[in-house]
């Protein structure tokens, strides 16, 4: 958070025609050599495993060799797309993702801006540290806290509402299907807000102080400084992060939903990863699980490119 990150300027690369590629390659051989281990790393751990996708088109049985497996084509994809439950979990996944993105993006930015406006180095630092500590608490513990807080028996929230006279009888928060998305989103916000704001805070620190001084001289108040200098200053960071998170929309994991869920809210709580686990690996249906995985990847790629395209068009900022 203390390091000053400067948005890196594009390296001044000459336009190289392809026939001159090898010449350059020889010139820059050390750079190539230096990057080689990482290229190999990515290849080994991110590309070779894609070979496993073949499983989705086979009736895969462990302990048989690749050539002994029976090929079944798109059978498992058809099965997946024909399952009603799949659409339910897809809806839940995307809904909770979008809510998470909406809240989990705006609030940390706001928080970062507000912290930046604070006077007093010590206070600022402590506040920041305290706010990101929950990030290190595991979901198991967070779920326990949430459950306790929302409990009808001496749960903090119910007690407070009763004391304020807002309600007469305790509310069964965890039994309300339609509230589940909200509860997940809010607990996620509590846990990750501080942590997510770190990067924005760092970006703000990177804004040239002269700009603020110039603005002050021109008579800009706090609000105008935020609006015209702070926010535009971190705009590129915001957009890059936003595009990347959109690519991850579908893979939100399942810990929160599994730990906070219960039989009464399951129709709003089950997410894609949990579905893949229960109906795929959990039943030794490796092929089906892989099919779900491939589907996920495609949706992610489509989302990523769409988001990237839109931002490229309207804001000239993009990751690719």
């Amino acid at each position: 958070m203390e390091t000053i990150t400067q948005p890196s300027k594009p390296v001044d690369v000459k336009k190289i025609k392809s026939r001159r590629f090898w010449k350059t390659a020889v010139q820059q051989r050390y750079l190539y050599l230096m990057s080689l281990p990482f290229v190999i790393w990515v290849f080994v751990f991110n590309y070779i495993p894609i070979w496993g996708w073949t499983m989705a088109f086979q009736k895969y049985k462990p302990a048989k060799t690749f050539f002994e497996q029976e090929w079944v084509g798109f059978k498992y994809f058809q099965e997946l797309l024909a399952d009603e439950r799949f659409y339910l979990v897809l809806r839940n996944t995307l809904a909770m993702s979008f809510l998470g993105l909406l809240v989990g993006f705006t609030v940390p930015i706001l928080f970062a801006v507000l912290i930046n406006e604070l006077k007093g180095r010590f206070f600022k630092r402590s506040l920041q540290t305290i706010s990101y500590l929950p990030h290190f608490v595991s979901w198991v513990v967070v779920a326990g806290i949430v459950y306790k807080m929302l409990s009808t028996e001496s749960g903090g929230i119910n007690d407070l509402l009763l004391w304020l006279g807002v309600i007469d009888t305790p509310i069964q928060f965890m039994a309300k299907e339609t509230w589940f998305w909200g509860i997940v989103t809010v607990s996620d916000l509590w846990k990750e807000m501080g942590w997510n704001s770190i990067i924005f805070l760092a970006a703000i620190t990177g804004i040239d102080p002269e700009q603020f001084e110039a603005a002050k001289v021109d008579g800009a108040g706090r609000w105008r400084q935020i609006w015209h200098i702070t926010l535009p200053g971190i705009r590129s960071v915001i957009i890059v992060l936003l595009i990347l998170s959109i690519g991850n929309l579908i893979s939100i994991g399942f810990e929160k939903q599994m730990l906070l869920g219960n039989p009464l809210v399951v129709d709003y709580a089950e997410v894609l990863d949990l579905y893949a686990l229960n109906y795929g690996i959990g039943l030794n249906r490796f092929s089906f699980g892989t099919a779900v995985g491939i589907f996920n990847s495609f949706v992610s790629i489509i989302l990523l490119f769409t988001a990237n395209g839109i931002f490229k068009r309207y804001s000239k900022e993009s990751v690719m």
């Binding site: 326990g144 459950y147 069964q172 219960n262 009464l264």
Partner: peptide, 11 residues
């Protein structure tokens, strides 16, 4: 118990 189907094993 109203919390029967909501409570976790710990509770």
């Amino acid at each position: 118990d109203k919390e029967s189907f909501v409570q976790k094993y710990d509770q």
